[in-house]
């Protein structure tokens, strides 16, 4: 009984703060201290703020690209990794481990200074190689650097998820397919891929959520771009506005929906 009460308390601790943000996003008053009445005006304010919309678009483009790249490359790598053994395999395992374990802030600063240094070296070369009558392209931090940095983490995550799925996969089906003279490609398309698909989709959704919610890596490598978390961070730094509650509620709502779908997809494999 005591345990049950304790657990209820922990769940309250986890969800009440989120609930408060949601509740106050519908507060018509300016201040957190008093609830003055229901209103959706802060949602209207947030969604008509061009800075919010621009940050949202940036975040969506980045998250979608990172999720697509991660699920494609992660799946490919997971499939390839089960075919290799020995030191090469150990090296990849090590890299995946490091990519997941290293703090985001270290990835952020390392990527920042490495890319800025490389760009400073490459830009004069590009300038020299480019025909004189056209302005040479200038490499700089922006969408691509954020997508690349997020993909490092999310791709590693997808590899781990897919490998877990491969390990739990029914080999008998693949063997049966081979015995029936299906080509390896056909076996892959008709047997392996459908079995992997829930894990790939879950990996896509988790990657999207991670990228969409990430603040610290983007903070370092986004260059002049503002993602939604960067926008929220700077609004909070300037002082709390009720608009942030509305944005926060929308962000939480979106991630919760995606996460629940991902969880269902990942759990389904275990149920079987």
């Amino acid at each position: 009984m005591a345990m049950r009460l304790y657990s209820v308390a922990v769940y309250l601790f986890l969800y009440v703060p989120i609930g408060i943000i949601v509740l106050f996003s519908f507060n018509s008053g300016r201040h957190a201290s008093s609830f003055e009445g229901l209103s959706v005006k802060w949602y209207g304010k947030a969604l008509s703020n061009p800075f919010v919309l621009e940050a949202l678009t940036t975040s969506l483009i980045i998250a979608l690209s990172a999720a697509l790249l991660s699920s494609l490359m992660g799946t490919a790598a997971a499939l390839a990794l089960q075919r290799i053994r020995g030191p090469l395999r150990a090296m990849f395992d090590g890299l995946i481990y490091v990519a997941i374990m290293i703090p985001g802030i270290v990835i952020g600063i390392a990527t920042l200074i490495a890319l800025v240094t490389v760009f400073d070296l490459l830009n004069p070369v590009l300038g020299a190689l480019w025909p004189a009558d056209a302005a040479p392209p200038k490499l700089s931090l922006g969408y691509a650097s954020v997508i690349a940095a997020h993909t490092l983490f999310t791709m590693s995550l997808v590899i781990v998820l897919i490998r877990a799925r491969i390990a739990g996969m029914d080999r008998a089906l693949i063997e049966a397919s081979e015995d029936l003279y299906a080509s390896p490609w056909r076996t892959f398309l008709q047997i392996t891929l459908p079995q992997l698909f829930p894990a790939i989709l879950a990996g896509f959704l988790l990657s999207f959520t991670f990228s969409f919610d990430d603040f610290i890596i983007s903070f370092f490598v986004a260059g002049p771009n503002t993602t939604l978390p960067i926008y929220v961070f700077s609004s909070i730094r300037r002082g709390i506005t009720p608009e942030v509650n509305a944005i926060g509620t929308m962000v939480l709502g979106a991630s919760l929906t995606l996460l629940i779908i991902a969880q269902v997809l990942l759990r389904r494999r275990e149920g079987r």
Binding site: I18, I20, I21, F215, V232, I236, S255
Partner: peptide, 17 residues
Amino acid sequence: VPFWTSLLIRTYAWIFI
């Protein structure tokens, strides 16, 4: 699930509280 939602927003909730 909360772990996968924005740490930024969840931490902000505590500024508020």
